[in-house]
């Protein structure tokens, strides 16, 4: 493991959560509050409305920790969260976004 490349290292320690949510004021508070009150840092957030705008998609870049599974279950309990999908850290959405941070 000591020869791991940076990208492999990142893939081991980060995860991307993709959430389908209702689009109204307060939903983001519910989602990020779930993390903040457990002292679980969210490294990156991206949110855009989908289709008619009735729903949104939220992308969260988070550190891969043992309690991530518990976080996912807690998110699934939120009434305004319609679905949660978990991806590896090499998911393109944040990689392509990195261009804007140069």
């Amino acid at each position: 493991m000591n020869t791991a490349l940076w990208t492999e290292d990142k893939a081991l320690t980060r995860a991307v959560l993709e959430l389908d949510v209702n689009n109204h004021a307060g939903v983001m508070s519910h989602v990020v509050g779930m993390f903040s009150r457990r002292a679980y840092n969210v490294e990156g957030i991206l949110c855009m409305p989908v289709g008619s705008g009735a729903t949104s998609r939220i992308w969260l870049l988070v550190n891969e920790e043992a309690r991530l599974g518990q976080m996912q279950k807690q998110l699934e309990k939120l009434e305004d969260v319609l679905a949660v999908r978990r991806h590896e850290a090499d998911h393109q959405v944040f990689e392509r976004l990195e261009e804007f941070f140069r």
């Binding site: 004021a25 307060g26 508070s29 519910h30 509050g33 009150r37 939120l78 009434e79 305004d80």
Partner: peptide, 14 residues
Amino acid sequence: TYGLSIPITKHNYL
């Protein structure tokens, strides 16, 4: 009230 009650309710509405 909405913000204060988020972590202590199952769900909340404004």
